[in-house]
């Protein structure tokens, strides 16, 4: 089949989305399809977004330069605004600023104006797609809630899934993520201050919150219990997962969250929150991890419990790995579902 994949392009900002797009294109090619990836420049800002929506709607993707495209697979806003009779959308996420992150009290007038336009754009184009998949149950749930459209959750594996292993417990809780407010490292550090046991925490990643987190660690006197590792290499990441006692993922309303899957692959229990979104599709409280209320006290209780019971952590981790394997998450099944007639 001649397949066109549409996705966004944000130069010099790499992230999970890039891996997702490249992984899909590579998997489609491995199965012998003729695949081109159409990456559309994305820029935030209301005026820019309005222009981009308009531009995408005018794109020719059925017969570009007289070459027939058999199917279009779209992953992101506003790329799913293209029109093709055989259009499959695998929704990574919508424009979140206009949906669950929208707050009428604090929104600028420009954003308030843009919101109905984005909603209309999504309703129009997502409803027209021949088939809709969502990156995770959370993304599907939001689509049902805000746009009254059904989408089937379709999981894909994290990068280098086969490289994750479990090794000796070296006594620390690990949380690799960008240091950003939505990832809530602050909540985790506050929880650590409430812990009764000497729980140790390694935070990997960099971001806008680094200064604030350093200050918080000092204020709470936790220098001997928390380390900010900054950017880490792939090998370091694998090692840190392998030797952790547990993995913390107290993020706020995540779409999918590779961290959950990576922790399960490394056979580690996951400590997450009841409003964390994506991870809740995988983590079973008391079986493969802890789902706590998003408060420092509740999170501290979960951390204390994990810290006190290394053996229980191992069992939960193993259960997590089995749960991952039972889901049969792999690129081959993704391709089969996306290309089903």
């Amino acid at each position: 089949m001649r397949l066109l994949v549409t996705a966004n392009h944000t130069p010099f900002i790499a992230g999970g989305a890039d891996y997702h797009v490249q992984g899909l294109v590579a998997a489609l090619r491995r199965q012998g399809h003729w695949v081109e990836c159409l990456r559309l420049p994305f820029h935030y800002g209301e005026a820019q977004i309005r222009r981009q929506m308009h531009y995408v709607e005018g794109l020719e993707v059925v017969l570009p330069n007289d070459v027939r495209v058999d199917r279009v697979i779209s992953l992101q806003f506003p790329g799913y605004g293209v029109s093709h009779p055989d259009h499959v959308v695998w929704l990574m996420h919508q424009h979140r600023a206009c949906y669950e992150l929208f707050d009428a009290d604090t929104a600028t007038p420009a954003l308030t104006d843009l919101k109905p336009e984005v909603e209309a754009f999504d309703n129009r184009h997502l409803a027209a797609a021949r088939r809709r998949f969502a990156n995770s149950p959370r993304v599907a749930e939001r689509l049902a809630q805000f746009n009254a459209l059904h989408a089937e959750p379709l999981y894909h594996p994290p990068h280098q899934a086969e490289h994750f292993t479990c090794a000796d417990d070296w006594g620390y809780v690990f949380y690799p993520s960008r240091l950003e407010p939505l990832k809530r490292q602050t909540l985790l550090i506050e929880a650590l201050a409430e812990c009764h046991r000497p729980v140790r925490l390694l935070l990997a990643g960099d971001g806008s919150q680094r200064g604030a987190l350093e200050a918080l660690i000092e204020r709470r006197g936790l220098q001997e219990r928390v380390a900010l590792l900054g950017h880490i290499s792939e090998a370091e990441k694998l090692t840190l997962y392998a030797h952790a006692r547990a993995v913390a993922f107290p993020t706020h309303d995540e779409d999918y969250g590779y961290i959950t899957l990576e922790a399960m692959l490394a056979a580690k229990p996951v400590i997450t929150c009841s409003d964390s979104g994506g991870p809740l599709a995988f983590v079973r409280h008391g079986q493969t991890g802890w789902v706590s209320e998003p408060s420092p006290q509740a999170l501290a209780a979960a951390l204390d419990e994990a810290w006190a019971m290394p053996g229980r952590c191992q069992e939960m981790g193993r259960a997590g790995r089995e749960a991952y394997q039972a889901q049969e998450i792999g690129w081959e099944s993704v391709v089969a579902r996306l290309l089903a007639e």
């Binding site: 000796d168 070296w170 290499s233 090998a235």
Partner: peptide, 16 residues
């Protein structure tokens, strides 16, 4: 196994 947090981080780095 590692009393000092800094020791632990060093150890992880060398294992990696």
């Amino acid at each position: 196994r590692f009393g000092d947090l800094q020791d632990l981080v060093e150890h992880v780095r060398s294992a990696a």
